[in-house]
């Protein structure tokens, strides 16, 4: 059992370990789906701040998990991607256009509350937009907080 899942009201917070093996990735997805069903969660936040290598298998996992979670009536938010990981994902060609990305857990919480209140969701961005803003807005300390 993958244990890095915590429930916070209608949100699931998933701490993604730094180096996942393929089997762990698949187990993690299964556990996320089980937890959504158990807690009737609306939002699944994947906290990536520990992840330093994201290859195309991992990218496919993010995309397919996001699609599966949508089918269960919830949404995925990716939080805390390291700047080196974002650069590499973009160069690899892995921009995940339909997956919501926020800079850190604070933004993920803010977005979750806004959605719960039915107000705007303007803090969402996409990985390629985030990469464009990288040099201006990324501060290493944000990811270590």
């Amino acid at each position: 059992m993958f244990t890095g899942i915590q429930k916070l009201e209608k949100m699931l917070l998933v701490s993604v370990p730094s180096d996942l093996l393929d089997d762990d990735v698949i187990r993690m997805r299964r556990d996320i789906l089980r937890a959504i069903r158990e807690y009737d969660s609306d939002i699944v936040v994947l906290d990536f701040h520990l992840v330093d290598i994201c290859d195309s298998f991992f990218g496919r996992f993010i995309y397919s998990t996001s699609k599966t979670v949508e089918l269960m009536g919830a949404r995925i938010i990716i939080a805390g991607l390291q700047d080196a990981v974002i650069e590499t994902m973009v160069e690899l060609g892995m921009t995940l256009p339909e997956v919501d990305v926020v800079i850190d857990l604070d933004e993920a919480m803010r977005l979750t509350r806004k959605r719960a209140n039915g107000t705007s969701t303007d803090v969402i961005t996409k990985i390629d937009e985030m990469a464009n803003a990288l040099s201006l807005e990324f501060d290493d300390n944000v990811f270590r907080a």
């Binding site: 330093d52 290598i53 290859d55 080196a84 590499t88 160069e91």
Partner: peptide, 10 residues
């Protein structure tokens, strides 16, 4: 640097 090390690892 970390960005290039990540590129190499990926």
């Amino acid at each position: 640097d970390r960005a290039d090390a990540t590129r190499i690892a990926v």
